[in-house]
Computed example of a mutant assay.
Amino acid sequence: MKILHILDHSLPIHSGYTFRTRAILKSQIAMGWEVAGVTGPRYNKPDPDPEIEEGLTFYRTAPVKKAIAPFGELREVKALADRVIAVAREWKPDLLHAHSPALDGLAGLRAAKALKLPLVYEIRAFWEDAAVGNGTGTEGSAIYRLTRAVESHVVKNADAVAVICEGLKGDLIARGTPANKVMVSPNGVDLELFGEIPPPDLDLAAKLGIEPGDIIGFIGSFYDYEGLDDLIAAMPMIVARRPKAQLLLVGGGPMEAALKTQAEASGVAANIHFIGRVPHTEVERYYSLIDVLAYPRKSMRLTDLVTPLKPLEAMAQRRLVAASDVGGHKELIEDGVTGTLFAADDPAALAKSVADMLDDRSGWEAMRDRGRAFVERERNWGVNVARYRPVYEKLIGPR
C-alpha cells in the first residue's frame, strides 16, 4: 500500500504537528507500507526537493506570490494541489491523506479529483479555534466563520475523515457529519523514546540553585490558553503549604514577557524559574528534577475539544500529572487514577491539587504505574496507526 500525505509543513521544522507526522509515517513504514509527504508553500524551504529527513521523504511546493486574502490562500491551494498531482503521477500512490489545516484539505480534494484517488482528511484541531486560543483570531468573526465553512466543505467531500480525539468527532457529528465517516486516531507516544527517567540531575539542580523535591514543572509553549498565569498565581498558595516548592517553566512563546512580569511581582518570585527553550537532548534532565507536571489549560472551545500531547509524554516517563478539567484533559487523565484534575481557571483549586499531591507521596508509584500502563495500552503509536488500516483498505478495495 502506498500513501501520499499532504502536509502544511514537516521536518526538519520541529513542532507538535511535525512530530505527529513523523510518528504516523514511521509507524506506517513499520507496518510495511510505502509513504511520502508533500508540504505546502509557506514554511519549508523549497530545496532540496525531495528532502530526506530521518529516513522520511518530503516533496516541496515552491512559494507563491503573495496576495491579499483570500487570493493568496487560493494560490497556495492551487500550487499545493498541482505539486501533489505531479508527485502522484510519478510515485503512483493508492490513496491521498491530507492533514489540516483546511487549505491542505482543499488541495487534497482538487488533487484527488484529478487523479481519481480516494482522499482521507485528518483534523488535528479546528484552526479557527486555534487562532482564538493563540490570540490571533476572534470567535464568531468573519474569518472564523469562513474557516469553519471551508473545513465543513472538505469534511463533506472527503471519502473519510480522521480526528485526533472524541471531542473533535463529536463536534463534526453535531454539524451533520455521519458518525461512520469519522475515525479517531489519537495522539500517541513513541515508547522507544521514553524510557525510565534517570535519577535527579544534581548538577543541574545546583546550577539552578534548587534542591530536588517539591518541584513543579511545565515544559512546552507559552500560549495564553495554557493557563500559565494561573500556575504562577497559584505559587504563593503552594509555597504557603510547601515552603520549598519550586516552579520550573521550560520553553517559550508569545506569553513569555507577560509571565515574567507577573512572576517578578509575585511574593514568591525566588521560587519561580524561567529556563527558556532547551535542546531536545537536554529536556530529559529537567524532567528528572520535576515531581509534578502541571497543565493548567484554560477552558475554551480549543482546550475542550482537543487533546494535548505533553501529558501523555509525561505519563510515559512515569511522571505525575496535575491538569485542569477541560475536555481535552479528561479524555487522557482519570482523576485520582492516572493523575489529578482540578477546576480550570481557578488558581486556588490548582494550588490545593498540587499541594495535596506533594503532601502525600504514598500513592505516587502506583499512580505512575497506572499512567504508564494507560499510554502503553491505548496511546502508543503502533496501536493508533493500525486504526487507519480498515479505513484505507475500504477505500482502496474497489480500485
Rank of each mutant, 00 (worst) to 15 (best):
P63C: 12
L11V: 00
F274I: 03
L103Y: 11
P50R: 10
V337A: 11
K65L: 15
F342S: 00
N44L: 13
F194K: 04
L117Y: 09
K244S: 13
L289P: 00
A98Y: 12
L74C: 07
A88R: 00
E331M: 10
W91H: 00
A112I: 05
T21H: 08
G276Q: 07
G37P: 06
D49R: 08
K26E: 15
G267L: 08
L350C: 10
Y287Q: 08
P101Q: 08
V383T: 14
R301N: 13
V354G: 01
T136D: 14
L332N: 11
V35H: 08
P200L: 12
P243Q: 02
V283G: 10
G371N: 07
G16S: 11
A125W: 06
I52R: 09
A81W: 04
D304S: 13
A206Q: 10
T57R: 12
A269G: 07
V38C: 13
A269Q: 06
D359M: 02
M255K: 14
N187T: 05
L56Q: 12
V87C: 09
H9C: 08
V189I: 15
V154S: 07
G397P: 00
H99Y: 15
V38G: 13
V278F: 03
A158Q: 03
L11I: 02
E376D: 10
H329R: 04
E54W: 14
L248A: 01
W91A: 02
K113S: 11
F274G: 01
L248V: 02
G105A: 07
A67R: 15
V321W: 00
A125N: 11
A206T: 05
Y286K: 08
K113N: 06
V292Y: 05
L204K: 04
G176A: 04
A81E: 03
F194Y: 15
I275F: 04
G327K: 04
Y43R: 08
E53N: 10
T61G: 13
